[in-house]
Amino acid sequence: MADKSAHKERTRARILDEAAQALRIGGTEGVSVAALMKRAGLTHGGFYAHFASRDDLVAHAIDRMFQDSSAMLDHFLRDRPGADGLAALIDYYLSEQALRMAGQGCPLPALTGEVPRMPAAARTRFERGMEAFRDRIALALDAMRRPEPQALASSALAEMVGAMALARALSDHSAALDLLGAARSRLKLRLGLA
């Protein structure tokens, strides 16, 4: 029985990983249950053994994406002092590598424009993930003794997300890199990290 349960969890995780990538790349319109199950190497009929509906899948995939974001934040902020970790996070988040990793990257730049049209459960999970991301930045700013760390974290997160979303929208790769570079340097200067 334990093997069957473990297999079901692995299958569910595979479906969620595929859905998370599809959401990052194509938004909610990019999540076709039949295509998703095919990419996961599963039959369409097996979908309902794991999720009640497509909307249920989208909500859980958003949770999955923010688990990835949490791991990224841990990598940069858990074991480094506030300023060092925050500077490294900004450098990575606004990097060419992150620009190229739209299918694996932070869900905030990919989905922010779509959230108002998502089902309530998905919106709630997105908002919770965004708040958790902002709160981790605020903790780093608080450790640096910056005034009003929550407000400053909200502003910093908005700048990071907006810069990445705009850079991904540009067809000129050099212009996208210039935009990210300017955002990276100005944000670090504004936060006292330069």
Rank of each mutant, 00 (worst) to 15 (best):
K4A: 15
R12H: 12
R12W: 09
I15F: 05
A20R: 07
E29C: 04
K38G: 00
R39N: 12
L42W: 04
T43H: 08
G46N: 09
H60M: 04
R64P: 00
S70F: 14
S70R: 15
L73S: 00
D74S: 13
F76G: 03
R80C: 01
R80Y: 06
G85A: 11
D91V: 00
Y92W: 15
S95G: 13
E96I: 11
A98L: 14
L99S: 03
L99A: 02
M101L: 12
Q104E: 13
A110S: 15
L111K: 08
L111E: 06
L111P: 09
T112C: 06
E114F: 06
A122P: 08
R125I: 01
F126D: 02
M130K: 14
M130Q: 15
D135G: 01
A138Q: 04
A138H: 04
L139K: 10
L139F: 10
A140V: 03
A140D: 00
A143Q: 13
R145I: 01
R145H: 14
R146T: 01
E148L: 06
A151I: 05
S155I: 01
A156Q: 04
M164H: 05
H173T: 12
S174T: 10
A175V: 00
D178C: 05
D178S: 12
R184T: 01
L187P: 00
K188C: 09
L193K: 01
L193M: 03
A194S: 13
